[in-house]
């Protein structure tokens, strides 16, 4: 009787966005009279961080501090349309729509600044701290708060912009089924280190090594959250979670958190995560989607690690002690 250690890896390619109906999302942006840029979206932030990413994309495009951006996702009835939060599409679709809207608003912002400063708009630049300046003459500048007030009360201009991202719909070629189903693909590999107890059948995941190629990571800390939180879900699916009963009767299935098992804070592996950044040509500042793929690779990586540790090849999740022990029994019988 022993605890057997093994290593395994698995890789995943994952599409960003989908093809059906062009998969569009819209964004609208406008400046308040004090120079806060409000982004209106119908895209929902359920913890994945789309509000932060939208604000980053807008701030970068406008050339203003992120504190000047406010994201409003309050109402899908009245907001500009979004297809939804699925297909790992939010950062890509919404980010592109926000950049388009913010670019239009930046154009108006520079036009109004040109009138205020009595210069040509093409000679203006933003400094990232809230000022619009004349290139080469740093003292000739106006702050966005003064500019937004002047636009509203003096020039009668709205500093605003409209954005949409639409992927050109792609119909399948009838003979081959060939089509363009997504906008780009992200790639990842996870290596798992496990320990299998050959007496109890218990599998413990000790370490996970996650390598992700997701275009540019617009917010590396939040991207790490997605990778490591998603990997936890993968471990959970691999070792614990099932809505189906362990025994033939469904009455033995889990009905609540007491019966529906998930790893707790004492069961978490040590995770090592890194990003390879190869910006995607059609992504917002090069970003691809990352949301859904993160739970994928850990599961086959753990299955492979179990095989490496004890020779048992499991093909059904979750990899419960019972399944491991039955696999070990079968190996002894042969």
């Amino acid at each position: 009787m022993a605890k057997l250690r093994g290593r395994g890896y698995a890789s995943v390619n994952y599409p960003t966005g989908m093809n059906l109906g062009g998969d569009p999302s819209q964004a609208l942006i406008h400046a308040t009279t004090t120079g806060t840029f409000v982004i209106s979206l119908s895209s929902v932030d359920l913890g994945q961080g789309i509000k932060t990413i939208a604000a980053q994309c807008a701030a970068e495009t406008l050339g203003l501090p992120i504190e000047n951006v406010l994201v409003d996702t309050a109402d899908t009835d009245t907001g500009p349309h979004c297809m939804g939060t699925f297909a790992s599409r939010g950062t890509h679709r919404v980010g592109n729509a926000v950049i388009m809207a913010a670019a239009e608003a930046r154009g108006v912002m520079l036009e109004v600044a040109a009138e205020e400063l009595e210069v040509d708009a093409a000679d203006l630049e933003t400094d990232g701290t809230g000022f619009i300046r004349l290139k080469g003459a740093q003292e000739k500048a106006i702050h966005i708060t003064d500019l937004a007030l002047a636009a509203h009360f003096k020039h009668g201009r709205t500093i605003s912009g409209r954005g949409i991202y639409l992927k050109e719909p792609s119909a399948p070629v009838p003979e081959t089924g060939e089509m363009d189903p997504d906008s780009c693909q992200a790639h990842a590999c996870t290596a798992a280190v496990v320990e299998v107890d050959d007496e109890t059948g218990v599998v413990e995941v000790l370490e996970l090594y996650n390598a992700y190629e997701i275009g540019r990571a617009l917010n590396p800390a939040m991207a790490t959250q997605q990778v490591e939180g998603g990997a936890w879900m993968g471990v959970s699916h691999a070792l614990f979670e099932t809505t189906e009963p362990y025994y033939p009767s469904r009455d033995h299935g889990p009905h609540d958190f007491a019966g529906y098992l998930m790893p707790g804070p004492a069961d978490i592996p040590v995770q090592h995560s890194l990003f390879l950044e190869r910006p995607a040509g059609n992504g917002p500042y090069g970003a691809k989607g990352i949301g859904e793929m993160t739970a994928n690779a850990p599961i086959p990586a753990i299955a492979n690690a179990i095989f490496d540790a004890c020779g048992v090849r499991l093909e059904s999740m979750p990899f419960t002690p019972e399944r491991v022990l039955r696999g070990l029994d079968a190996l002894r019988d042969t």
């Binding site: 913890g47 959250q225 490591e228 939180g229 990997a231 936890w232 879900m233 958190f257 998930m262 707790g264 804070p265 004492a266 978490i268 995770q271």
Partner: peptide, 20 residues
Amino acid sequence: DVVEAISGNVCRCTGYRPIV
């Protein structure tokens, strides 16, 4: 001690490590 303290609380997103 921290792990024991939060062991009655379920989190679906973070994988617990950042909370600890």
